[in-house]
């Protein structure tokens, strides 16, 4: 069986799919990749289902060794991937790793989270209908935890046709640029009435900085405090990814993949789904502005995103890197 050996796990690397979505009503966080776009595109490149498992690396990537030949792709933040310590590897395309090859990553130069997909996916047990790692709960992924040195992760069987995958790449227009200052589109509410008019104006009129206390659970922001009419507390209700909570201290928190399922703080807005990848690629010190959109606009943007996935797949057949036939031979 083909395996990926973890020589060095990097700072915080986990196996993720697109989340554990059937147990939120029982208090189970969804987990799953933070950057859905990079996750899905990485899988499309290597011929996997979009939700297949990938390795999500944070801030500083790891070093891995392949026991057998494998077809991989690397997307998301740029961690300067290299083969055998010297050959720089291009991202957003299919690559062939040979038996014994090492794949190493450095610190994120651009963006914050880098995704590694392999044809066949990473073969870890399904726990509660998902393979996503939920570290706080110690379940899913590889033994319910972040990867560590010496782990050997099985790679699933893949029935790809080399000529299909060889030379696939994502065109520049569909590769995101990870800015250090982003505008996040949000849908106002549901507790917008709990804030003063000035509080709402401050939320939309100021720049917020990502604090060092930000992780997969949520991004804590610092900046102009958002004022409540009276209390910051509500009778606890449901929380989903993208919710922007404002506790009593007045600083926003964007709830993300590992967020708890219920909470008692006022939610001023929700980041729209097609903008969540931008948050995933921010690091401490980066800046955020919020901009309100209506629901129709948000749904249009979501449709556009779905179309982009379709276009990317269609373009795999239209464009290939030069000499892909030779790559196909290497894959066989």
């Amino acid at each position: 069986m083909t395996k990926l050996k973890v020589v060095n796990p990097g700072m915080y690397s986990t196996i993720q799919d697109l989340g554990r979505k059937s147990y939120q009503q029982y208090g189970m966080p969804v987990a799953g990749s933070m950057d859905d776009y990079a996750h899905r595109v990485a899988n499309l490149l290597v011929g996997n289902a979009a939700e297949a498992t990938v390795i999500e690396q944070t801030a500083l990537g790891g070093v891995y060794q392949f026991t057998e030949k494998a077809v991989i792709s690397i997307t998301g933040g740029d961690m300067m991937p290299k083969r055998n310590g010297e050959e720089s590897l291009k991202m957003w395309r299919t690559l062939v790793m040979h038996p014994g090859d090492t794949l190493s990553f450095g610190a994120a130069q651009n963006g914050f989270r880098c995704y590694l997909a392999v044809a066949g996916g990473f073969d870890v047990p399904t726990v509660l209908k998902s393979k996503a790692t939920y570290v706080r709960g110690g379940l899913g992924g590889f033994e319910g935890r972040i990867l560590k040195k010496g782990d050997e992760i099985a790679i699933g069987a893949s029935t790809f046709v080399p000529m299909d995958l060889a030379g696939r790449f994502v065109r520049v227009s569909k590769i995101p640029t990870y800015e250090e200052q982003v505008t996040l589109h949000v849908i106002l509410g549901p507790q917008e009435d709990c804030f003063t008019r000035k509080g709402i104006a401050d939320f939309f009129g100021n720049v917020y900085t990502v604090s060092g206390e930000s992780d997969r659970m949520g991004y804590r922001l610092e900046g102009e405090k958002v004022a409540h009419v009276s209390s910051a507390d509500i009778i606890s209700d449901g929380i989903i990814r993208g919710a922007v909570q404002i506790p009593g201290h007045g600083n926003p928190i964007i709830m993300l993949s590992d967020c708890q399922t219920t909470g008692g703080y006022t939610k001023i807005a929700h980041v729209i789904t097609s903008d969540l990848w931008k948050v995933a690629q921010l690091k401490a010190g980066n800046c955020i502005r919020f901009k309100a959109v209506d629901i129709e606009t948000a749904h249009e943007l979501l449709k556009e995103e779905a179309n982009i996935y379709r276009e990317i797949e269609a373009e795999f057949d239209q464009y290939r890197i030069e000499g892909y036939q030779a790559l196909a031979e290497q894959m066989s």
Binding site: I187, L188, G189, P190, I235, D237, G238, I240, G242, A243, K267, H270, V271, I272, T273, I295, A298, H299, L302
Partner: peptide, 15 residues
């Protein structure tokens, strides 16, 4: 009420 673009919350009496 909207809870983002993929969720709604149906609220009953606030008690």
């Amino acid at each position: 009420k909207h809870a983002g673009d993929c969720g709604v919350t149906v609220e009953f009496e606030n008690i």
